[in-house]
């Protein structure tokens, strides 16, 4: 499928950057004329993925987070959030609702939120090397109900 537009973003894994990451990605996706709900879905999924990099991948350190966003001809957005952090030993377990290694006030619903707010999600990880989370969502946009 043809890529229509693409952008790359790199930032440090500081929690203050969570807002920047989700706003930057949603602003880029705005060219597809998404609904408010679709924009919120994207913002939320990106926020979860980036938070995972900060609280898990680079738990006791500050590392780099790499985000790539591609917009395809069919109105699909692909967001890739990559880190070079600790990696996930058991991806299946990590994606289970309510599973968390952190305790405290983390609900263990990060992947559940990403799954329900996107169409598809892929996770690739290697312990000690890092994790790549790919989110895909078709933007139907404001005109969807009118001329679809």
């Amino acid at each position: 499928m043809q890529v229509q537009n693409e952008m790359k973003l790199q930032m440090e894994s500081r929690s203050v950057n969570e807002a920047y990451a989700r706003v930057a990605v949603s602003a880029f996706a705005a060219s597809l004329d998404p609904t408010v709900e679709e924009l919120n879905d994207i913002k939320t999924a990106v926020s979860e993925a980036v938070t995972n990099c900060i609280v898990h991948a680079y738990k006791n350190a500050v590392g780099k987070i790499y985000i790539t966003v591609k917009i395809f001809e069919n109105g699909e957005v692909q967001i890739t959030v990559r880190d070079r952090g600790c990696g996930i030993a058991d991806i299946k377990k990590a994606r289970e609702p309510l599973f968390t290694t952190l305790g405290g006030d983390r609900a263990g619903l990060g992947f559940s939120v990403m799954e329900s707010f996107c169409d598809r999600i892929f996770v690739r990880s290697a312990v000690g090397k890092g994790t790549t989370v790919t989110l895909r969502k078709r933007i139907r946009g404001k005109g969807a109900g009118v001329d679809a």
Binding site: A19, R22, N40, K43, T44, S47, E48, T51, G104, D105, R106, A107, L109, G110, S112, V113
Partner: peptide, 13 residues
Amino acid sequence: GFMDSSGIGLVMG
């Protein structure tokens, strides 16, 4: 204006 799963954790806690 915005909320992710941190809001869920806040309420559950």
